[in-house]
Design a protein around this nucleic acid. Structure first.
Lengths: 239, 239
DNA sequence: CCATGTGAATACTTTCACAGCC
DNA sequence: GGCTGTGAAAGTATTCACATGG
């Protein structure tokens, strides 16, 4: 169905190339949620589920779930539902979780340390491969079983361990310099927790998470509720 | 290509009311970014800026910036640009930052501690008012100058300090119970870091941040780059 | 002139509703 | 009968391009 449409509409400006799989960004952002929901269902001993069950576990509506899954292929059975384990595998494969991704974290303050010791990564194909900090007092210490190394070691680490993904957990001032160093070293995907906009060359992806922004958005809605007794607000979701 | 998230909020279906201020969610999610960019410009001694300057500091395109600002009112001067300080104030007011918001954090593990000591909140109208944990070993200890209190103290704290916003930084298993307790205590906005979908009654907002999901999305794009040498990716942005 | 503010055009997302298949 | 998969419709968001006004 949309294959043809999408191919034509693709924003490939210059890319004459085939553009085969065009999964919408909004869908990609939800796939990890579905994965998590499927794991929950599997843990409950559920082997087959309907789009309603899975959608409810994921906090989305069933039509959206089915539409999202339809971009991956037809992995359900009409009149029955989805095989939990099979679907889980298909989504994991689509997300690239059949391999482990080595990630380097730059900045080992509170947040960097929290990330280093966060248990949720390993089961999602993410492996913290190295920790970097510029502070000489931190270099050489061990966090979550990994020895902190200096920024000067970055390019060697990235090259030797084939690291493509980095996390920036430094103060805002350092973010752009660190970004430049990461890009120079060969990193092509960056998750930026520093409260600063960093610029990167084409071909490098940046995602930004800003903890205070999320709270500011909530405060905005809270203010509206307060000034406007009647209005109700809906449940949120986020990618 | 990239994007992020963001969310929700009801469209006034039934509200016969004037629909007075209908600022789009996508715009609200960017206002804090503009605020930050304006502060940066002010720090550089810039008193007036064009939409291009500000857009570039915020990492968005100028047309989008102007459209966003147009929802707030006409705070620029044609042929000239925006007064940095004036616009900063207008956005802050729109976001509800003329008052401070007291926030309670539930869960004082690595992430909760990182949040408690994160300096970026205070300048954004967010004040960490209380820390809660169920672990008896943590209760009574001090984190970032605040004494950790037991979950049983929650409703009293929320009532006494008029807290409307809470942060959940517990393990996934505890998230729904904590949510229920928060809602019962009177909290109406929740930022959920636990890797679990929580359900809330109407009138309560939830935003979810999942650190491993962000990395999984990057891994997906990374995989596509690897399998598809020619295609380039753009710079990301996030809510 | 210049840069804002904004209708109109385009692009993307969600939701509906039902055909198709088990 | 029931549930998936999907065109088509509805709803949002982004971008264009230019009239407007200092």
């Amino acid at each position: 169905m949309e294959q043809s449409t999408v191919t034509i509409l693709r924003s490939d400006r210059l890319t004459a190339g085939a553009a085969e799989r065009g999964i919408p960004d909004a869908t990609v952002a939800r796939l990890p949620i579905y994965l998590r929901a499927l794991t929950t269902l599997a843990d409950q001993g559920i082997g087959v589920c309907s789009s309603h069950q899975l959608a409810s576990a994921a906090g989305v509506n069933p039509a959206k779930l089915r539409k999202d899954l339809s971009y991956l292929g037809s992995y359900g059975t009409r009149g029955v539902g989805y095989d939990v384990e099979y679907l889980r595998y298909q989504i994991a494969r689509e997300l690239g979780q059949t391999q482990d991704w080595d990630v380097v974290i730059v900045g080992v303050g509170h947040l960097g340390s929290a990330l280093s010791t966060y248990g949720g990564f390993t089961t999602r194909g993410i492996r913290i491969a190295a920790l970097i900090d510029t502070d000489p007092k931190r270099v050489g210490t061990e966090v979550g079983g990994i020895t902190v190394e200096p920024l000067t070691a970055l390019s060697k680490i990235v090259r030797n361990r084939h690291i493509a993904i980095a996390v920036i957990a430094t103060p805002a001032e350092a973010a752009q310099d660190v970004t430049d160093a990461l890009v120079a070293a060969g990193v092509t995907s960056i998750l930026n927790f520093a409260p600063a906009i960093v610029t990167v060359p084409d071909g490098v992806d940046v995602r930004k998470v800003d903890l205070s922004i999320e709270l500011q958005i909530l405060a905005y809605h809270e203010q509206r509720k307060a000034s406007n007794g009647s209005e109700a607000a809906g449940t949120g979701e986020t990618a």
